[in-house]
Design a protein around this nucleic acid. Structure first.
Lengths: 213, 213
DNA sequence: CTACCGATTTGCAATGAATGAAAGTTTCTC
DNA sequence: GAGAAACTTTCATTCATTGCAAATCGGTAG
């Protein structure tokens, strides 16, 4: 795609990456509000103004990889397997997304968990994160509707995406907020998805194993 | 409760209300970013500084009634009817919440829909709104778990709340974004909740009417 | 009515994010 | 190399937000 690497490109990529890493590191050390753009810029040795030509806002640096991730999720839907039931696709989608949000990243092992903590603890970042999450959900819903055009309408698609994402998100969120380890959070998300797929109507009843036919 | 109305109290209430209304009106007329706190303050004839003693930020005015609403939702759960199935309570909860977000408000008929549009169209407000929404969901999940302590664990409660809220929210959101009228959005939300309660596993299949037993 | 206490409001100064415009540099192309 | 295109840096400005101290206001005990 954009592999064309002139010196210019490489330099830009490096600056960008440096800004991201310096930002996260400083946010971690001094706190988000306490860190000024000036300090970040100084750490990378560029002007304050340059920061804003790479990221539109202070919040934005933290979500540098959002678009990449959203694209990957959309691709899962776009590449849906022929005759695959909606529920199966949703399960795969949830699986991949959960995995990605716990492991995968363009960040070093040092910075990855650190960002998580930041987004969880800084209200402004949490808010921005949710905003991005929802915009993605909307896109996913539209994509799902497209992919299964003659099977489910837009409202159904929205219900499906919203339900699965909502359940998984809230479940992992609560788990993580209780300082449970990543694998526990992953498990919670996974279980939430299962419950949602099988229907909340069954909740609280003994344990009626969902009939497969 | 706090009905103690000295002149002081009344005056404060009036100022607060004026600030809210002036804000919404100006945000609508000039746009959110284009409206300065100074203008809002001027419109109500108080100092800029005073604005901040009523609301912690510019975004905050718009969500002045959030806490009240969240409290009402929590109360629905707290007052759960004896022996009421989880799914039934969730349905009632969704119903009341959907209704409230389309009708009810401490605002005039003129300002109510106007705020909706603002929150939908201004990224910063949308983000803040989602943040508040999620905090509420978390509280609702904890409350649900408490209310049904020996029937569902916290993850199940989170899955339930997240799924229902997620489905309803995304469905109405998409509907509203397509400029469909409020009653259509309400219907979409309602349908999304039904779908979620019955399980997404059934999606896309002919039309297997959920067995009631 | 008057003095006094505590709650509000105000004016002022400062900090820092974000943006626009113009000028200076660097990289790329021919 | 010359010039264009892409980046950066400077500089100046607007505006949200906050801390502080002085000025006001409302309630109330003499």
């Amino acid at each position: 795609m954009d592999e064309a690497s002139g010196l210019r490109e490489r330099k830009k990529r490096r600056t960008r990456q440096s800004l991201i890493e310096a930002s996260l590191r400083l946010f971690h050390e001094k706190g988000y509000d306490e860190t000024t753009i000036a300090e970040i810029a100084a750490a990378v040795d560029v002007s304050t103004r340059t920061f804003f030509s790479y990221f539109t806002s202070k919040e934005d640096v933290v979500f540098f990889d959002h678009e990449t991730r959203a694209g990957r999720a959309l691709k899962v839907i776009a590449d849906r397997r022929p005759a695959e039931p909606v529920a199966d696709l949703l399960l795969r989608l949830a699986d991949e997304t959960l995995r990605a949000s716990i492991l995968d990243s363009e960040l070093t092992a040092e910075l990855f968990p650190l960002r998580h903590r930041l987004v969880r603890s800084v209200p402004a970042l949490r808010a921005r994160g949710l905003h991005l999450l929802f915009d993605t959900q909307r896109r996913l819903a539209e994509a799902l509707h497209q992919a299964y055009a003659d099977e489910i309408d837009l409202v159904e698609a929205a219900a499906a995406v919203g339900a699965v994402a909502g359940a998984a998100h809230l479940a992992t969120l609560i788990s993580v907020d209780r300082d449970e380890p990543p694998d526990r959070a992953w498990e919670a998300g996974r279980r939430a998805v299962d419950i949602t797929l099988h229907g909340l109507a069954a909740l609280g009843r003994p344990a009626a194993p969902a009939a497969e036919g």
